[in-house]
Design a protein around this nucleic acid. Sequence first.
DNA 1: ACGATCCTCTACCAATTGGTAGAGAGACGC
DNA 2: GCGTCTCTCTACCAATTGGTAGAGGATCGT
Lengths: 198, 198
Amino acid sequence: MSAVAPTRDRILAASVDLFGTRGVDSVSLDEIAREVGVRKQTVLYWFESKDALVDGVLDQVAAELFVVIDAAVRSASDDPLERIDSIVRAVFRPAVRRPALLGLLRDVSRLDAGQADRLRQRVEPLVARAVEYLGREMAAGRLRRGDPGLIAALGYATLTGIATEPEALRTVGWTADAAGLRKLRDELRGFLRSALAP
Amino acid sequence: MSAVAPTRDRILAASVDLFGTRGVDSVSLDEIAREVGVRKQTVLYWFESKDALVDGVLDQVAAELFVVIDAAVRSASDDPLERIDSIVRAVFRPAVRRPALLGLLRDVSRLDAGQADRLRQRVEPLVARAVEYLGREMAAGRLRRGDPGLIAALGYATLTGIATEPEALRTVGWTADAAGLRKLRDELRGFLRSALAP
DNA sequence: ACGATCCTCTACCAATTGGTAGAGAGACGC
DNA sequence: GCGTCTCTCTACCAATTGGTAGAGGATCGT
């Protein structure tokens, strides 16, 4: 056991960042290898092809997101608006600190069907639970009524969109310092809260 | 004047679609040429490099969006929620019919700084007007108060996100038929309306 | 009829892509 | 000491990338 992370993990980490920020197709194996400090053939030793590497990366991202969201969902209070609040806060931190995470999710539509399915399968349980939850709270009159699935998709789109498009934010004069982040987070919370309130 | 569009326009149209759906880096000049029914060198005759082509495509997208949005803004009623409604309706149609349009916008963060700036410059006046408008209506108490710039960005993120991520929608069981489109549009209108209402 | 301009073509090119083949260094049990 | 297994390396490869050079066919005004 060494002090530095094993090569395979370092390859995965670098790939998440590069794929997520620049897109899978635009990043070469050579580039990943350079980032890790190794030769391309070492990458191909750990992942037999680029496709296999993409699979590995998607698995890793799904797992990371699952942990974060699952924890937020479990630990939150009873009021649905409070719960959504806490999910936003939980997801917001990793999302803006590592835009690559959600960036990769966003990239799914550009992957081939097999890989898209693979990722969808990983995320499915989370989505199903969220949709079910929204439906229940709507029925109880604690959330604005609507199609739970589409509302979930809209909330996801808002969060992902805002986290993966710093350019759009910069266009309206936003800056990525600590104060800016806090303000963005609070504005996002208010936005979603208002969108979902009954 | 011929019955078919001139080559240059056909190259632009094909490029918008391909760049927008698959990403600029993933689409080769050969592919665009094949789509248009011409050789790569013809593409390079009309646009001296791939970068120049990207510039042309961005200009075209900005112009198309400008027309659509500008018309919607001008023709709408006085009530800000109604106005936003009509903008959503106006943008929704081209957005879901040609996801490439917004997909390209979304891709800006992956372009180099020069091209991003170019596009930002084109969109700037639209954004400035929107932000100013939101600020005015907030002050008048006709919209929920908040940072007009960030609210504008959040609305944009919601719309763009939902239009460019059919995968996310499919995960919640949505289908892209006529009924699905109508339902999605109405749900989006309700979502934004509720998010922005005072 | 004739040159000029517009447009598309064939023929290349160097660099980069994902991937193969296989050598060699180090740690391990025996 | 010796083979085996793990890991990273050098050396290639065919295909594709964006781009250059320049030929040749239309269509035009004159």
